[in-house]
Amino acid sequence: MSKPNSGGRRFLLRRHLNKLRWLSLAVVFAMLVLLPFLHVYQTYVAAHGYDLLSPDEKLLYDVMEAITSPFVKEPAEALDAIKGNTWSGTIWGFKMSDPLAVVGQIAAGHGVHWPFVVTVAVPLLATLLLGRFFCGWICPATFIYELTSNFAALLKWAGIDVGRRRLDRRLKYGVLAFGLIASAASGSILVAAVYPPAIIGRELYYAIAWGGLGAGAAFFAATLLFDLLVARRGFCRYLCPGGALYSLLGRYRAVRLRRTVETCNDCAKCNGVCEFGLDPMRDGFGQECNNCTACVAVCPTDALVFTIKVVDVAPQGPGHLGRRYRHGEASAAPSPAIEAKEAAA
């Protein structure tokens, strides 16, 4: 996986991780859509009245039955195996929760309820190892925001300008703090109301099972507009309290990205494509990197690799295949092309 490029472009797994990531995001989102349908199907099965269903309801029943019957004999019971969403879910009895849920609940409940806290073990461990990977690989909001980003790119190509502002990344830590304080003050986990993956999980369920949407959907819609009109991935970068928590927990992650300075040519494509506005070209990954591997995929020289280190490599200077390095300090200033790319990130 960390082989330097030599000669023709042979298969490198890390170049295709971005596609795997899209698959992961899509699967998670698809599950969040599928599970409420399965629940509705379960309730129809439990109600024993197939003949009295309306044609729409029968359609849902028949489709769900077709999907599940090769695997499941007793839908009323067996389909309980997978429930919930990324905020908190159950997979074959094994419960997992978002760290923000745990922290938020401790704040709201003014105390630690250990049976719940242990459910954060696997996500926590994964975050300690892999950093903010949730935001890149699992979060259902990411799925929507990624689609929005692509849509924004389309708009830009069509000539419509989209928001490209940069705000302070530290804002979201303030949101996190504020959310926890508000939760503690009110005695209820208010921070869950401003955390998009929790919102999406709930709203999909409400929309499918109850045919309605709520306050959360409006909030999420607002964040989408924020993304589109103000800042690319604005909510994730600047406002998401969960992202803030993941970043904090992932500060000393074991697995992180590293720029192989020997093969870097300072083309700044990595900076252009980084969805969180980080600075891979200058070794600036930090706690905010979510392992989206967009930079890895785009790098023409495959200079970006994964490494096991608990801190980022210190800035290594210009890439050895780049103009600055080869032509010395005369080219100290970054090229206009690079500047333009960075401005666009």
Partner: peptide
């Protein structure tokens, strides 16, 4: 209210 995390499960 202090315990419920609004997960919807």
């Amino acid at each position: 209210l202090g315990r419920c995390i609004h997960c919807g499960q």
